[in-house]
């Protein structure tokens, strides 16, 4: 890591679920913050993509939510929490190409069924806690 950090740094974001054109603002801000901390570009890239995919999912499926990014000496942790419909079958959702995104989202180039697989691909740890009708919390970690 950059310098020894006494306390982990925490960035909190509310993800607006109404505006698809501004989706990704939290991820872009995180990228900027991590760059200012002097973190290496490949780590930033992995965190940025994983978080952006999660943010897009929250906007598409859950009308937004909350995102926390915790930077510690060992890792960058991303926690995405929403109160959306939940994921009925996580195993199925993790398969490349499986998607429940609506047509208007697909016409923008999303909804290819690559979001969750990309989040797993770019992180060292990923856990999905989801209850149908209550919401989803995704915890991801990228280790230094």
């Amino acid at each position: 890591m950059v310098n020894e950090m006494a306390e982990p740094l925490i960035f909190h974001f509310d993800v607006d679920g109404d505006n698809f054109t501004s989706a990704g603002q939290a991820s872009v801000q995180v990228k900027k913050n991590l760059r200012q901390l002097g973190i290496d570009p490949e780590t930033i890239r992995r965190v940025s993509i994983a978080m952006y995919e999660g943010e897009i999912n929250m906007v598409i499926h859950a009308k937004g939510g909350e995102a926390d990014v915790i930077v510690s000496d060992e890792s960058i942790e991303i926690i995405l929490k929403d109160t959306g419909p939940g994921i009925a079958n996580i195993e199925q959702a993790m398969q490349e190409g499986f998607s429940t995104a609506p047509d208007n989202i697909r016409s923008l180039g999303f909804g290819a069924g690559m979001g969750l697989p990309n989040m797993k691909r770019y992180t060292d740890y990923m856990q999905i806690d989801s209850v149908v009708g209550e919401g989803t919390t995704i915890t991801m970690r990228v280790n230094f």
Partner: peptide, 29 residues
């Protein structure tokens, strides 16, 4: 876009016909 984020490498030139605002975020991230 997710395919691009999954497969493109840093410093690639990304060729696409998509022009919506999200391509800027994808290219940046």
């Amino acid at each position: 876009l997710s395919w691009v984020m999954g497969r493109a490498k840093a410093d690639d030139a990304w060729i696409t016909i998509m022009t919506n605002i999200n391509v800027v975020a994808v290219a940046s991230l």
